[in-house]
Every structure is written in C-alpha cells, then in structure tokens.
C-alpha cells in the first residue's frame, strides 16, 4: 500500500532494519540502522515487530506527504517534526491521514532519527534484510537514498487502539560531547606509547563521516616506532577504532567487513548508539574499560531493552 510521497528527501534518508547477517564471510557488511535502540523503539511505538524497516534520517530530514491513514513515530535525534505545521514530539506515536504533510527539518540534538510506520516500510527482502547498502547499490528502496518524487509503500499493519509514548526516563539525552567507552585492542600493542593520550585527548567528529565510519579530527595517534602501519587484512567489527597512516581515528560502523589498518581500541556495543548520534563538529572522548565491564554494560543494555519491550506488550 502506498504510504508516503517524498516531497523533499533530506540529506541522506535510507530504508533500514536491524541489518543483514549471514554473509559477512562473503564481504557483505551488516548495514542496518546505526542506532538500534531508536530503530527498535520506533517500531514498538507503532505496534510493529522490532525487525521491520524504518527510515533512517541523517541530519537534515525529509518532507513526506502521507498517502493513507497510519500511525507513525519518530525516535532518535530531535529534529523538530511538524505535521501540517503543528509541532509533534518524538518518541511517541501519532496518527496521520492521507494528505497530511510531515516535515522533519533538522537535527537539534543527536544526528540520526528513525521514522516507523504501521506495518513497516515495504521493500524487497534482499539476502534476509530490507536494509539499504547504498555503496553497493542494493537493499532498501532501489539500493539508494530517497529522492524527490519517490513513493514509499508500507506492509500490512493495524492501527493502534490508543497512542503510545516512551516514558521520559527511557528517552536518551544526547550530549554535545560524547564519552565513548572502549576496550583496548586488537592492535593496542602497536600503540603502547600513545594509548594513554588516546584515552585523554578530545576529538571532533568530521563532516566526512558516513555509515562506513565516524571520522575523527584531533591530535594524530602515533604508531609505536618500528610497528607496521598496515596489518595483514583481517575481519573488522562495528566499533573498531582504526588508525590509518595519517593518525586520525575512524570508528568503523556497519559498511565494512575487513580492513588492513591497525585498531587501537573498540567502542563497546552499549555505546554504539551514541556513536550514531554524534553530530559532525561535536566532540568525543574515550574511556578505557575492561572486557568484563563491557560485558556487564552489554547485559545492562539488554535488560533496558527488555523493560522497554514489556511496556508495550
């Protein structure tokens, strides 16, 4: 069923779900929403399964005209959404009807928002996912970001009996300065002299960041003398902080499966949503944690998700 006519696509708006797994060994990266908490909650707020596809909206949002009645919800970055020029808060469901104009102007806090609609956005399942991998041109809406004039479809879904809202206590407060916790390695041995300073310096998020990597500006991170700058290509995971030859760290995101640069540390899973929400120009510092602490925080994050799930079932 047709659900949105794209009047203005915004700066980079793509269809994403929770990712494409099972082909990492063939060079196919996971893709998927960068802020999975925002993606899951957006779906829950409109009564969907968490795995359905949403729009991931980056910095400047789209203008959409609703083509049918549906519930929608926007989560993640606060972008000042209006419907027919009336402000509508994020993190709650809202009913739209055919002809309504949804404007999502620009991120004020955070960097990326998720928009879910009853029934989920309909796009072909490609290798087990509806996520867009724009660099390789497949998945999502014709393998690309939205363009003006696109018509989006939605799956079969029922309207909510009553509106839903995420309680304030669960709404993340995105900071202008993010503190990201990270476990050293896998190549921390190549940075024994600079590991301490890496965990004390402040970095700025570069405007060149994309879904492949969050690029950082700041004091270059130096390899130990005598250690190679490149390594034998090996698998990478989201959160790996890669140090290329120029010493400017790149936090790898969801569009790469292998790499040949050394990684000084790896952002913990629980903080990857904050990486997704770090706006170009904002600052980032890293805090060193042990693997045991990272696993504790992982369990805490899973528990938070479970509590949110129970609110809506």
């Amino acid at each position: 069923m047709d659900i949105f006519a794209v009047k203005n696509p915004g700066s980079f708006t793509t269809v994403q779900d929770l990712g494409r797994f099972g082909f990492l060994d063939r060079g196919v990266p996971p893709s998927g929403a960068l802020d999975t908490f925002a993606c899951r909650v957006a779906n829950m707020l409109v009564g969907n399964e968490e795995t359905l596809a949403v729009l991931e909206i980056t910095v400047m949002g789209p203008t959409l005209e609703a083509m049918a009645e549906a519930d929608i919800a926007v989560t993640g970055a606060e972008m000042g959404m209006t419907i027919n020029r009336n402000p509508v808060p994020s993190w709650q469901s809202v009913r739209v009807k055919a002809g309504d104009v949804i404007r999502i102007p620009q991120a004020k806090t955070g960097c990326r928002a998720c928009l879910a609609v009853s029934g989920g956005l309909d796009a072909p399942m490609v290798m087990g996912s509806r996520s867009t991998f724009a660099r390789a041109g497949f998945g999502g809406f014709h393998g690309r970001a939205l363009l003006k004039g696109d018509i989006l479809k939605r799956g079969v879904g029922i309207l909510l009996k009553q509106p839903r809202r995420l309680p304030d206590a669960f709404i993340p407060a995105y900071q202008k300065d993010s503190l990201l916790r990270a476990v050293p390695g896998p190549q921390d041995n190549s940075f024994t002299d600079s590991l301490e300073s890496f965990f004390t310096h402040t970095y700025q998020v570069s405007a060149e960041s994309d879904r492949m990597g969050c690029r950082l500006l700041g004091p270059p991170v130096e390899h130990d003398p005598g250690t190679p700058q490149s390594i034998i290509t090996e698998p990478v995971v989201p959160g790996n902080i890669q140090i290329p030859a120029d010493g400017r760290p790149i936090i790898l995101l969801v569009e790469q499966t292998t790499g040949g640069y050394s990684k000084i540390a790896t952002v913990i899973s629980a903080d990857m949503g904050n990486v997704a929400q770090a706006m170009p120009g904002s600052s980032v510092t890293f805090e060193r944690v042990t693997l045991a602490t990272a696993h504790l925080l992982y369990r805490k994050e899973q528990k938070r998700m479970q509590i949110v799930r129970e609110l809506f079932c």
């Binding site: 050293p184 896998p186 034998i232 090996e234 959160g239 790896t266 913990i268 899973s269 990272a294």
Partner: peptide, 15 residues
C-alpha cells in the same frame, strides 16, 4: 585476540 565485546580474533599463523 580480544576484538571488542562481541568478537574474538583467532589466529592460525602469521603471514
């Protein structure tokens, strides 16, 4: 080798 909180690197050799 530890590779973040959800991955382990297993090396079979060098080179």
């Amino acid at each position: 080798r530890i590779n973040g909180d959800c991955a382990l690197l297993v090396d079979c050799g060098d080179g």
